[in-house]
Design a protein around this nucleic acid. Structure first.
Lengths: 197, 197
DNA sequence: AACTAGTCTGAAACTCAGTTTCACAAAAGG
DNA sequence: CCTTTTGTGAAACTGAGTTTCAGACTAGTT
């Protein structure tokens, strides 16, 4: 037997440690700047060894970005549960509400994180990579919605990519405005811009 | 005086060396895989020191990707010289012809490069970053076309981003098909997918 | 031709991220 | 109680990229 009983307890403990490490790392990054914090700094600040820190997050960047790990699958799932007769573009827009909601839940934390990411080239690059990785999943979900689960047409991928860009750009402006602008409004505006091509 | 006479000669020589280094690096990457080639390997294969190699390309990745450096500005320029009454989406599509043309000029080399990039995570990530850097320039060009050179609306950036995605995805499929599919056709298809949102 | 100033190069030392290996401790599970 | 798995720390290692410095080469100047 592998996954039952005590193992769950362990996984929860693991997640808690992970969250704790991420928290410590985040504060250190904010205070000193991402590039000025070494893995050794992180480890000793968190009271663990460098090895351990790197076991929880494979890289320095992941300590910040692992928060977003689930987003891709979440949006894809949301997409699959949209009504079948809804057009792709609307379905994508609605599916993104899932993510947006998490920003509205705790705007301050979200803003702080996003600001850190956007002002740090290394984090920016990694997040770009991560978002890029969501494309296939979204395109796949679109294909299943369309009734052709096997083949993903170019159009599906393009729409998925464009939707992710809308999210990205809306977040960009939202962050640049220090949270003053309305995130949902920005996203709607972004989607509308492509609605009239 | 700084930029006249002999300095030009030097710059040409520099560019030639750069091209030579890139060529050697490319072959080595193809033969052994990007990750299995160290900077020392590159330097000694090219007959220069590690320092020199890194002076020409700031990073290992740049030795491959510097080919694309001009593309961003090229597309932006092409965009600016499109007729003023053309709609943004069409103008973007036509502006990309500039880049596509370079792929058609030497399809074999282009295919080899693209394949190497797409099959190497590190190169993929850097190129994503580079393309992302073109967004503002394209959005700016769109804004100028629209008669509002000062402010770049969300919509402009979104359109620019989507157009770049179309290029990216078209190239993806083209590469996956080993050059068998028609690149222009793929790009048109990608653009068409967003034309009907 | 001799002098000077700017540029290119190579060598070496250094920092840091990430990997790998190993030994040890703590539990899980039988 | 024993054994097997899992988490941790220590240490050595690889490789990318930075920095510093000294020497060579190249212009333009007088």
């Amino acid at each position: 037997m592998r996954a039952s009983g005590r193992t769950r307890t362990r996984d929860i403990a693991r997640a808690a440690v992970r969250a704790e490490l991420a928290q410590v790392a985040f504060e250190l990054f904010l205070r000193n700047g991402f590039d000025n914090v070494t893995l050794d700094d992180l480890a000793s600040a968190a009271g663990v060894s460098r090895s351990t820190f790197l076991r929880y997050f494979g890289t320095k960047e992941e300590a910040v970005l692992s928060v977003f790990d689930a987003h891709g699958a979440q949006v894809a799932d949301a997409l699959r549960s949209r009504p079948a007769d809804e057009d792709d573009w609307t379905a994508l827009r609605r599916a993104l509400d899932t993510v947006i909601e998490q920003y509205r839940q705790d705007p301050d934390a979200a803003l702080a994180t996003t600001k850190l990411v956007r002002s740090t080239p290394a984090l920016c690059a990694r997040q770009l990579e991560k978002q890029h990785g969501w494309r296939p999943a979204l395109a796949q979900a679109l294909a299943e919605r369309g009734g052709s689960p096997g083949s993903v047409a170019v159009g599906m991928t393009v729409k998925a990519a464009a939707a992710l860009d809308c999210l990205d750009i809306a977040l960009d402006h939202w962050t640049a405005s220090d949270g003053a602008l309305d995130l949902i409004g920005l996203l709607d505006e972004a989607f509308a811009a492509l609605g009239s091509c």
